[in-house]
Design a protein around this nucleic acid. Structure first.
Lengths: 140, 140
DNA sequence: GACAGTATATGCAGCATACATCTAGACAGT
DNA sequence: ACTGTCTAGATGTATGCTGCATATACTGTC
């Protein structure tokens, strides 16, 4: 999912000089971001997947660029679990679009995600502080 | 890894009422925490795995309780990658202990983790804000 | 016809987590 | 002697999230 903008564009095999904590695959071990991002976009407006992806970019000021494939997978799962509903958009020309909409449960899930993300925010900060403190002590 | 303290002790099969964003396995999709926690503990003091686990609990005020098995796996990998070194502690009674120590590369890795965790902190906050904002707008 | 953009979807590899289980020494209680 | 608990290390397995590659298909442009 989310590549952080501002990092070097890194061509195909250009992960050379990066350290493990940033180099690792699977999002580099950052937490789940696609699902909450999708929910946030859906709260802003009901839309189809491709559009939600743009909405996520817009919302985050271009910082979060989710993988399209991953986004569709997440939307499917959210639908299976009853947090969103979808219908094929009709009467349009062009490729078929599937319009997604949040359910009441989806809105509750979004609330839970806020708490969850705040917790992650706090824990990340706590660990960063611990590391900083220990490093400082180490240099003394 | 880290179970957050304060959540109900949840007996064996007691994941019943929890929502997906908190219920999911694999750490619930929170980011990597064991590795940075281990590095922070090792910065504080060289020690063996079991003790590092306690140190992590102490450091975080009991908030982060890493899985022992996972911790040993992480330490092994860090050693394979040259970030820590280990020796079997000798002359002791009791079960064998393996003492771990940070290398210079390990200290650099810890620095990288600080930046990485700050980034995660910021991104989690950003998403939480986006969700909150969208939810607020939704209620108006 | 070739190509780019829109739109949805699947396959795969890699990392991280949680829970269960295994070995093994030391020690206390019955 | 048997049982249980704590310490200490390690492995197996299931689940989940990510990123990248790839496949399909429609539309409009050159």
């Amino acid at each position: 999912m989310g590549r952080i903008h501002g990092h070097e564009p890194r061509g195909p095999g250009a992960a050379g000089g990066m350290r493990p904590c940033c180099r690792r695959a699977g999002g580099g071990g950052r937490g789940a971001l696609v699902e909450p991002a999708a929910l946030a976009a859906l709260l802003a407006k009901s839309a189809h997947g491709y559009d939600l992806r743009r909405e996520i970019q817009r919302m985050t000021g271009g910082e979060l660029e989710v993988d399209a494939g991953g986004l569709y997978r997440v939307l499917r799962r959210l639908e299976d679990e009853g947090f969103v509903t979808s219908v094929w958009a009709e009467g349009d020309s062009g490729p078929q679009r599937r319009d997604y909409e949040l359910t009441a449960e989806g809105r509750e899930l979004a609330e839970d995600w806020v708490a969850h993300l705040r917790e992650r925010e706090r824990l990340s900060g706590l660990l960063a502080d611990s590391l900083s403190a220990a490093m400082k002590k180490d240099t003394e």
